[in-house]
Amino acid sequence: MNLGMRRTAMASGAALLLCHERHGHSSDEGNRVEVRGNLLMRPVPVWLLGIALAPMLCLTACTSDNDPASGRAATTTPRTSADPFEEKKLTAQAQSGLDAVTEQGQSMIESGVERVADGVHTQPDLAAGHSYELTVICAGKGEAQIVFTPGKTAPKKAAPCDRSVVFERFTSGKALRIDVEGDAQATGIIAWRIDTI
């Protein structure tokens, strides 16, 4: 007898035993063997049936309890990558805006184009005591902040991501770091340039 037939026989036998007990038959009738078709049926104790069914009941209860997909939406939305076409468009807008306001007579030291999500982080090699100008254009949404380290070099300044041109003149010290970082809601492209004055 294979495993499937044995399980069927056990379940049917238990059902037969329950039926006998409900109709007032004595417990010694549970040892009786009955033949149905090609199956040899022997009743099994009720406690054995309970042991066999307990794991299935536990699995059913565990899988149906608090399913987050069926009950409610997730509280946070993962941040998706920018649309390549939109990113290319914003890059062109920011770069063309930067080129339009940069004077031809100035000498460029550094420049770049970065995603707002990545920000600008540079430590330019500038001569101490000389004057420079930082130009920043952010195209997109939200706002970015320009931060100089050390802070006495220049005050913190906002750069709205609406293609506004932001200038900041400063005198470099021995070690300088410039960061331009977007706020939590900001998206888009930052174009920046450092020129000598």
Rank of each mutant, 00 (worst) to 15 (best):
G50I: 05
T102G: 01
V46R: 07
T135Y: 05
A139M: 01
R42L: 04
I109P: 07
T77W: 13
P124V: 06
P155N: 05
S27R: 13
E87D: 05
Q104W: 08
P84Q: 09
L59E: 06
E21Y: 10
D28Q: 09
R177K: 15
R72E: 11
D65C: 02
S111Q: 15
L48T: 05
I146L: 12
M56D: 07
L53T: 14
E87T: 15
I51P: 01
V120F: 09
F85V: 15
D118L: 06
V165Q: 08
T8H: 11
M56N: 13
A117T: 08
A186R: 10
A100M: 09
A82L: 14
A100N: 12
A14D: 06
D179G: 04
R193P: 00
H130I: 03
H25L: 03
R72Y: 12
P150M: 06
T102S: 15
I194A: 00
H25V: 01
D99A: 05
V46F: 09
D99G: 00
F85M: 11
A175K: 15
A82F: 00
L40S: 14
K152E: 12
N38D: 15
T102Y: 09
P45Q: 09
Q93W: 06
S26N: 06
R22H: 06
A52L: 12
P78L: 12
E110F: 04
D99P: 00
T196P: 00
V180F: 00
A127P: 00
T75A: 12
L90H: 02
S164W: 03
E133Y: 00
K152T: 04
